[in-house]
C-alpha cells in the first residue's frame, strides 16, 4: 500500500506541476459540462445517462494518456519499473489516481451544475442528474471500466491515440446491451453500473498481466 501511495504522490505532483493550459482546459470543461447538467431535462433527449458515460470516457482517457502513455513515451516508465517499486503498486497507484481524478472532476461538474441551476435552469427541469444514486453508480462504474481498460490497452495498443476510441467502444457496447435489454424488460441503471464494474475487474486483471510482461516497454507509435 505504501508503494501505491508513492506512485499516487508522483502522479499528483506531475499533474499539479503541469502547464497552466491544462488547468484552463479543465476549467472550461467543468464550466461547459456543469452548464449542460444544469440545463438537462431528464425526460428529454439530452437527459440520457449516456452523457455521464461520455464524460467519464473523456476524462479518464485524458488522464490515462498522461499517466500510462506519456510515461512510456518519455522512457520514465522503464526507470520506474526498475526503481524498487512492485509492478502491481505501479499499476494500482496509477489506476487509483486516474479514478480519483475522474470522479473528482465529475463531482466538481455536479457542484458547478448545482450552483448554475439556481440561476439559469428553468423551473420545469426535473430533479438534476446528481441526485440520482443510480447515475452516480453508473459514473463510478464507467470510470472504473475506462481506467482499467486504458491501463490494459495502453500496453496492448501500439498506437495510444486509439485509447479514447477503444473506451468509447467498450462502454458503448455495455450501454447498447442495456438499451436493447430495456426494450424487453425494465432494467435498473445499477445493473449497468455493476456490469461495468465487473468488466473493469476483468480489464484490471488483464492490465496486471500486461504490466508483468515485456510489452510494457515496447516503443509507442504516434
Amino acid at each position: 500500500m505504501s508503494q501505491c501511495l508513492i506512485v499516487l504522490r508522483k502522479e499528483w505532483l506531475n499533474f499539479v506541476c503541469s502547464d497552466r493550459s491544462v488547468f484552463f482546459i479543465y476549467f472550461f470543461l467543468v464550466a461547459g459540462w456543469g452548464m449542460l447538467l444544469a440545463t438537462m431535462d431528464r425526460g428529454g433527449p439530452l437527459g440520457s445517462p449516456l452523457w455521464l458515460v461520455f464524460f467519464s470516457v473523456i476524462i479518464a482517457a485524458n488522464f490515462s494518456s498522461t499517466v500510462f502513455v506519456s510515461e512510456r513515451m518519455s522512457g520514465s516508465l522503464e526507470i520506474l519499473l526498475t526503481s524498487g517499486l512492485s509492478r502491481a503498486a505501479i499499476l494500482w497507484g496509477k489506476m487509483i489516481f486516474v479514478m480519483v481524478m475522474t470522479l473528482a472532476i465529475g463531482m466538481v461538474c455536479v457542484l458547478t451544475a448545482s450552483v448554475l441551476q439556481r440561476f439559469i435552469a428553468p423551473p420545469e427541469v426535473a430533479r438534476a442528474v446528481w441526485f440520482q444514486w443510480s447515475y452516480g453508480a453508473l459514473y463510478a462504474g464507467a470510470t472504473f471500466l475506462n481506467t482499467a481498460s486504458s491501463a490494459c490497452f495502453s500496453v496492448w495498443l501500439p498506437n495510444p491515440r486509439l485509447l479514447h476510441f477503444v473506451n468509447i467502444l467498450l462502454v458503448g457496447a455495455v450501454m447498447a446491451g442495456y438499451v436493447a435489454l430495456s426494450l424487453t424488460c425494465p432494467l435498473s441503471l445499477f445493473i449497468v453500473a455493476i456490469a461495468m464494474a465487473a468488466a473493469g475487474l476483468l480489464f484490471a486483471w488483464l492490465a496486471g498481466r500486461a504490466f508483468e510482461g515485456e510489452r510494457i516497454i515496447k516503443p509507442v507509435i504516434f
Binding site: K10, L13, N14, C17, S18, S74, G75, S76, E78, I79, L80, T82
Partner: peptide
C-alpha cells in the same frame, strides 16, 4: 542504480 539511454526523469517535477 540504473541510467538507460534516456534520462527517465519526470519533466514536470
Amino acid at each position: 542504480g540504473v541510467v538507460l539511454d534516456h534520462d527517465g526523469m519526470w519533466g514536470n517535477l
